[in-house]
Amino acid sequence: MDRPVATFTIDGVTEDSNTPAAPAGVAHPRSIRSFVTRVGRVTTGQSRALEELGPKFLVPYKAELLDLASTFGREAPTILEIGFGMGEATAHIAGLMPEKNFLCCEVHLPGVGALLKRIGEQGLTNIRIIQHDAVEVLDHMLAPAVLAGVHVFFPDPWHKARHNKRRLLQPPLVANLARHLMPGGYLHCATDWQPYAEQMLEVLGAEPALENTASGYAAKPDYRPLTKFENRGLKLGHGVWDVVFQRQTARQSLAQKSGT
């Protein structure tokens, strides 16, 4: 069993943060991040994975466009994952889809170490990790229309009404994600908090570049596994909602404008 060997903290927004409100008119307030502060432990196995596999699979954050073909060593459709936690779903999906590249953003070191450990155990080659805020990665490292898909699974729901504005999936970010999707690319979100699911439907549905692939919530795609946490919640009667939207193609946009 892995033995804890280190602890860490990362500065960021917390539920009780005194972060000042963003100025009016700011398109994407700096107070909104793709993560919240957590304290965690890096185990010996995670530490070993960081040391041994980090040089190959970690991509340093730089405020310049990333050459995806060079980064992955091949040309392939690229999926961006925002906030992969401990990497259980990420490794599962990457194993199911070896023909696709997965660019994964997570700021918390134990999660990064855990995913690297899974990469080594499963022999995965199609994952690269950026240990940085996904919002800044989008803004500075990815070109428009370069992504085949985006996964946002179980982002922090910010349960309290006065904190809802800190939720990741706000109109400016959704517009930014849509801009980075290639025509026909998809945005798949999942949450176990119904009010957030309702907001997801509302915000994604209001983005003109996106179209819902279902009449409302989507059936869980086969590629997204049920995590231990999710299974436990379902046994307790908690719901899980998937929302899947697609970037419109030029033909779809034209048909929508013409009203046909």
Score class of each variant (00 low, 15 high):
Val26Gln: 15
Arg232Phe: 05
Leu147Tyr: 01
Thr71His: 05
Ile82Pro: 00
Leu187Ser: 13
Leu58Gln: 10
Glu207Met: 08
Ala197Trp: 00
Trp241Ala: 06
Pro171Gly: 09
Gln248Leu: 14
Leu201Lys: 10
Lys160Asn: 10
Leu168Met: 02
Pro20Leu: 06
Glu202Ala: 14
Gly216Gln: 09
Val112Gln: 02
Glu51Thr: 12
Arg166Met: 10
Ala161Lys: 15
Glu75Cys: 09
Gly184Cys: 10
Gly237Gln: 07
Ala214Lys: 05
Gln246Asn: 01
Leu58Trp: 00
Pro98Ala: 01
Arg74Glu: 10
Met86Asn: 13
His151Pro: 01
Val112Gly: 07
Arg118Asp: 01
Glu106Ala: 05
Asp133Val: 03
Ala197Glu: 10
Gln46Thr: 04
Ala161Gln: 11
Arg232Gln: 11
Met182Leu: 14
Glu15Val: 13
Ala214Met: 08
Ala214Glu: 04
Asp242Gln: 12
Val137Gln: 02
Leu234Ile: 14
Arg167Ile: 01
Gln122Ala: 14
Leu53Glu: 02
Leu173Gly: 01
Pro155Thr: 06
Val42Glu: 03
Ser258Thr: 11
Gly87Ala: 11
Leu234Met: 12
Val39Met: 09
Ser253Leu: 15
Glu211Lys: 14
Arg3Gly: 04
Ala27Phe: 07
Pro4Gln: 08
Glu106His: 08
Ala255Pro: 02
Gly120Asn: 08
Trp158Val: 09
Gly216Leu: 13
Leu58Met: 13
Asn18Asp: 14
Glu136Gln: 12
Ala22Glu: 08
Pro157Val: 09
Gln252Val: 00
Gly12Pro: 10
Ser17Asn: 06
Gln246Pro: 06
Asn126Asp: 09
Val152Trp: 00
Ala190Pro: 13
Trp241Arg: 08
Pro29Leu: 04
Ala206Ser: 15
His92Glu: 14
Gly123Phe: 03
Val174Pro: 00
Arg48Trp: 02
Phe57Met: 10
Glu121Ser: 11
Glu230Thr: 07
Gly25Tyr: 09
Asp139His: 05
Pro195Ser: 14
Gln256Thr: 13
Asp67Trp: 05
Leu234Gly: 03
Arg232Leu: 00
Gln194Val: 07
Ile129Tyr: 01
Leu66Cys: 10
Ala21Gln: 14
Pro98Gln: 05
His28Leu: 15
Leu53Ala: 11
Tyr186His: 14
Val150Ile: 15
Ala143Tyr: 00
Gln199Tyr: 00
Ser31Asp: 13
Ala175Met: 08
Ala76Gln: 09
Trp158Leu: 09
Ala178Tyr: 11
Met141Tyr: 06
Ser47Asn: 13
Pro29Asp: 03
Ala76Leu: 06
Asn212Glu: 02
Leu142Met: 03
Lys220Thr: 04
Arg118Trp: 03
Gly239Ile: 00
Leu142Lys: 05
Gly85Tyr: 08
Ala89Val: 08
Gln246Arg: 15
Pro172Ser: 12
Gly123Asn: 01
Gly233Arg: 07
Val174Ile: 15
